[in-house]
C-alpha cells in the first residue's frame, strides 16, 4: 500500500486528470453533436450507435492519451535519476509494477467516465433503446484492457528511452496504425493492439441507404479478448525484463 501511496504523491502538480478530462470532454461534445444530428428513427438504436462510435473514436484519441499519460508518470523517474534511490528502498520490479497499477487505476476511472458520458447523452436525448448490462460491461472490459496494454507499451518506451519523443511518436503512429489495421486481411489486425478498440466492440457498421439503421450488434469476441490478454502478458514480461536489465 505504501508503494501506491508514494506513486500517488508523485503525481502531484502533474495535472494527470486534466490530461484525461480534456479528451473526455472532446468525446462528450462530439457525441452530443452526432446525436443531435440523427433522426428520430435512430434513437431506438441510440446506445448501439454511441458504443460503436465511441470505439472508433477511441482508436483515434486514446493511443496518444496513453502515450502522454505514461510519459507523465514515468518520465519523472528518468529526469531526477531516482531509480538508483528507489532501488535501495523497494524491489526493482515493484517500481515497474506500481507504475502500471497506478496507470490502470487512472484508465479504469477514465473508462467508467466514458460509459457515464454515453449514458448521460442517452438521457439527454431520451434514447428509447435499453442500455443492456452486457453492453456496458463489454465496453468497459474491452476499452480498459486495450488501454492498459497501450499504457504498458508506452511505459516501457518511456523508461527505455529517456527522450520522450520516442514514446509520443509511437502514440501518434499507433493511431494511424490502428485505423488502417481495420482494412488489413485477417489475421493481421489481431496483432495490432491499437485496433482492438474496434475489434472488441460489440457493434459493426454497415453501409445501407439513408434512414435505415446502420449499426448492428455482433456476438462478443471473447476469443479475441483472450488473445489480446496473451499479447499483453508477453509484452509485460518482455518489458519488465528490459527494465530490470537496465543498470542504474
Amino acid at each position: 500500500m505504501k508503494l501506491l501511496t508514494t506513486e500517488i504523491k508523485k503525481t502531484r502538480y502533474r495535472k494527470i486528470w486534466l490530461l484525461l478530462l480534456v479528451p473526455l470532454a472532446i468525446q462528450g461534445i462530439w457525441m452530443l453533436f452526432i446525436t443531435s444530428h440523427t433522426n428520430q428513427a435512430q434513437l431506438n438504436m441510440g446506445y448501439s450507435n454511441l458504443l460503436y462510435f465511441m470505439s472508433t473514436m477511441n482508436v483515434i484519441i486514446i493511443p496518444i492519451v496513453m502515450a502522454m499519460l505514461a510519459s507523465r508518470l514515468c518520465d519523472i523517474e528518468n529526469k531526477g535519476n531516482t531509480l538508483k534511490l528507489l532501488y535501495t528502498l523497494e524491489e526493482k520490479g515493484k517500481v515497474f509494477d506500481y507504475k502500471l497499477i497506478l496507470g490502470s487505476i487512472y484508465i479504469l476511472g477514465f473508462t467508467i467516465l466514458q460509459m457515464i458520458c454515453i449514458k448521460l447523452v442517452g438521457g439527454i436525448f431520451k434514447f428509447t433503446q435499453m442500455l443492456e448490462t452486457h453492453m456496458w460491461i463489454e465496453f468497459i472490459v474491452s476499452t480498459f484492457t486495450v488501454s492498459v496494454i497501450l499504457f504498458l507499451i508506452h511505459q516501457i518506451l518511456s523508461f527505455q528511452f529517456k527522450n520522450q519523443v520516442a514514446c509520443l511518436t509511437v502514440g501518434i503512429g499507433g493511431t494511424f496504425f490502428g485505423l488502417f489495421s481495420m482494412f488489413f486481411p485477417a489475421p493481421f489486425p489481431y496483432f495490432i493492439i491499437w485496433g482492438y478498440y474496434s475489434i472488441l466492440s460489440g457493434f459493426r457498421f454497415r453501409n445501407v441507404p439513408a434512414g435505415v439503421m446502420k449499426v448492428y450488434e455482433i456476438p462478443y469476441k471473447t476469443e479475441a479478448l483472450f488473445f489480446l490478454a496473451v499479447l499483453g502478458i508477453i509484452i509485460y514480461l518482455v518489458g519488465k525484463k528490459l527494465f530490470l536489465r537496465r543498470e542504474v
Binding site: 502533474r14 531526477g80 528502498l89
Partner: peptide, 25 residues
Amino acid sequence: SLIESPSYYGHLTGGENLEIVRILK
C-alpha cells in the same frame, strides 16, 4: 545513500521529496 548525483523529483518540493522516502522507509 547518495550515489553520484542526488535523486529527486523536480516537480515536488523538498519536503514532499523527503515525505516519499519517509513513507518508503
